[in-house]
Design a protein around this nucleic acid. Structure first.
Lengths: 215, 215
DNA sequence: AAAGCATCTTGACAGTGTTAGGTTGGATCG
DNA sequence: CGATCCAACCTAACACTGTCAAGATGCTTT
C-alpha cells in the first residue's frame, strides 16, 4: 500500500563516490558562506544549508560535529585569506607614511571585498571565548593574522620613524583603527557615510599620521 | 479529582495591579539586558527572560511584539545613555589635543563600563537594516549619538586646529577609530592585549594627533 | 559473488519564537 | 454593596531549530 512517495521538491545531489567525501565538505562550506553572506550568520539554518547542497540535513553531521563547527571553519579560513593578503603586500617606493597607508589599505580592502569572510572572522560575538584548554599547540589563524600586522609595524618601528611608543601597543592600536572602519562600513551600510574613498583615505592617513614622527 | 497542581519550580511574580503594566515592561528589559550581558544576545531565549521575570513566556508578547523588539528597545536605550554621557562632557583647561583625547575617552569609557549596552548598540549584526520605509520622522537615537560626536568635532574644527579635511569625514573617521578599540576590547577579552590603560591612551593620542594640525 | 564501509537517509527529540484563546482578579461604576 | 470591565496573565499548540540514533544504499576491494 505504501504509495509511491511524491518526492519532487528537494532535488538531491548524487551520492559522492567512495573517497570523495571531502568534496561534500567543501560544498557545504561554500553553500554556508554564500548563505551567511546573504542572510547573516544567524539567519541561516542547517536545513537551508543542506538543501542548498542537495543532501539531507543530518548528513551535515557526518562532516561537522555541530553547526558552530561549520561557522568556525569558515572563521579560520577567513583568517588565512587575510594573512595571505597581508603577507602578499610589497611596498611601492614612497615615504614611510605612504607605505604605511598602503599597507593598512590592504587590510581595509580585504575586509570590504570579502565582507562575508570578515564578518565571520571578526564580527561574530564570542567567537574567541570557549577554548581555554586546547590552546598553545596550534597557532590559531586569528593570532597569526595579527602577527603579520605586528611584524610590519615592527619593521616600520625599526626604521626609526615611529613615535616613541611600545610597538606592541601601536600594533594593537592600528589594528583597532582599521578594524573600526571596516566593521562599521560592513555592519551599517545604511548609515549616511561620506564618500567611501575619501573616508578610507582620510582614516588611513589619520592613523599613519598619528603613529609616525614626521607629521 | 483534579489534583492540586504540584506547582513548585517556576516561582511566579505576583500579578501587577491594574495600571502597573509598565513596571513589568521595565522588569523584562532589565532581565533581558542582564541575561544578554551574561550569555550574549543569541544565548538568551524568551523563556529564560520570562522565567527570570517570573511570568509565563507568552506574556512577553503583551509588552513586546517580538523578541527582536526587546533587543531593539535595549539598543535604542543604550544609544540614549551614550548620548547623555557624551553631552555631559565639559572640557577641562588644556591643549586642543588634550581636550580631544578627553572627549574621545568619554566614548571609550562608556563602552567599557557598559559593555552590555555597547554590545547591544553597536555590535549586533544587521541591527540597522530592515527599516527603509519608516525613516525620517523620529531622530533615531543611533544617529543622534553620532550627531553629538559630530558637533564636538565641528567645534574643534572651527577653532582652526584641525587638518584641512571635511569635518564630516573626520567625524566618521574618529568614530570608527574609537569604535574599533572598544568593540575589540569587548569582543575579544582573550586576546593578549597590552596593558589596557596604556593601550587606550596611545590609541586616543594617535587619533588626536592624526586629526590635529600641531602634531 | 561477497564483504566492508563511506555515504546518506528517515525518524525522533528537546528547545526555539510566535499565535490563539481562555482565565483571573483588581478597579470602576451603578 | 454587587455587577461589570478589561488589563494582566495563563495554557495549549504551531512550525521551526540543532542534534542524535539507527538503518539503508551502493561503490570498492577482495
Amino acid at each position: 500500500m505504501a504509495r509511491q512517495p511524491t518526492r519532487t521538491s528537494v532535488s538531491r545531489s548524487p551520492r559522492k563516490r567512495k573517497g570523495q567525501g571531502g568534496e561534500r565538505r567543501e560544498e557545504i562550506l561554500g553553500a554556508a558562506l554564500r548563505l551567511i553572506g546573504e542572510r547573516g550568520v544567524h539567519g541561516v539554518s542547517t536545513r537551508q544549508i543542506a538543501e542548498a547542497v542537495g543532501i539531507s540535513q543530518p548528513s551535515l553531521y557526518a562532516y561537522f560535529p555541530s553547526r558552530d563547527a561549520i561557522v568556525e571553519e569558515l572563521h579560520d579560513r577567513a583568517f588565512v585569506l587575510l594573512v595571505q593578503a597581508l603577507d602578499r603586500f610589497v611596498p611601492t617606493p614612497g615615504t614611510p607614511l605612504e607605505q604605511a597607508v598602503e599597507y593598512l589599505r590592504v587590510y581595509v580592502d580585504f575586509g570590504l571585498n570579502n565582507p562575508d569572510a570578515y564578518r565571520v572572522a571578526f564580527m561574530i560575538e564570542g567567537a574567541g571565548k570557549p577554548k581555554p584548554p586546547t590552546d598553545e599547540s596550534p597557532p590559531k589563524p586569528a593570532l597569526q593574522a595579527f602577527n603579520s600586522l605586528r611584524a610590519a609595524i615592527w619593521a616600520l618601528h625599526e626604521s626609526g620613524r615611529v613615535r616613541d611608543q611600545d610597538p606592541e601597543v601601536i600594533s594593537q592600536s592600528l589594528w583597532a583603527g582599521v578594524h573600526g572602519l571596516v566593521s562599521l562600513l560592513i555592519a551599517r551600510p545604511q548609515f549616511p557615510w561620506a564618500e567611501r574613498e575619501a573616508l578610507i583615505r582620510t582614516h588611513l592617513t589619520m592613523l599613519a599620521h598619528g603613529v609616525l614622527k614626521d607629521a
